[in-house]
């Protein structure tokens, strides 16, 4: 699963969803793998408006990637800052979460990730 996916996911426990702490899920004991993907600046520029930047910054820090700026870069920022563009490309388009856990900040439930597939099926007492 690409790390970008984390920007779309939340805890599957119903009562957690109303709390902002259920997003993003926090990677734990993460093993990452990197694909070689050609840099596509236009894709990143188009993608930014639909991402939750604060959550992305948290994910980036928690996975040990370079610190992202506090506010989302503008198109001009991305066009002029090659390092930022490369960092974002590497984090969003190239990095896969292969093993580890995703932890909810509200209920603490840990979703296992194996062979790149996170398991969001809940034990019966949490359904």
């Amino acid at each position: 699963m690409k790390v970008l996916t984390l920007n779309f996911l939340t805890c599957a426990v119903k009562s957690c969803k109303s709390s902002s702490d259920s997003f993003p899920l926090h990677p734990k004991d993460a093993e990452l793998a990197s694909d070689d993907v050609e840099v596509n600046p236009q894709l990143l520029i188009n993608l930014l408006p639909r991402l939750d930047w604060k959550a992305l910054k948290t994910t980036s820090t928690e996975l040990g990637f370079p610190q992202l700026p506090d506010s989302p870069p503008t198109i001009e920022d991305l066009q002029s800052d090659e390092k930022l563009l490369k960092d974002l490309h590497s984090l969003l388009m190239e990095t896969n979460l292969m093993e580890g856990k995703l932890v909810c900040g509200v209920c603490g439930h840990e979703y296992a990730v194996r062979e790149g597939i996170p398991n969001f099926l809940l034990p019966s007492h949490l359904v």
């Binding site: 699963m1 690409k2 970008l4 996916t5 996911l9 599957a12 896969n96 790149g116 597939i117 996170p118 398991n119 969001f120 099926l121 809940l122």
Partner: peptide, 8 residues
């Protein structure tokens, strides 16, 4: 392709 998750 982002991935495929196991879920309900």
């Amino acid at each position: 392709f982002l991935g495929c998750l196991q879920g309900d």
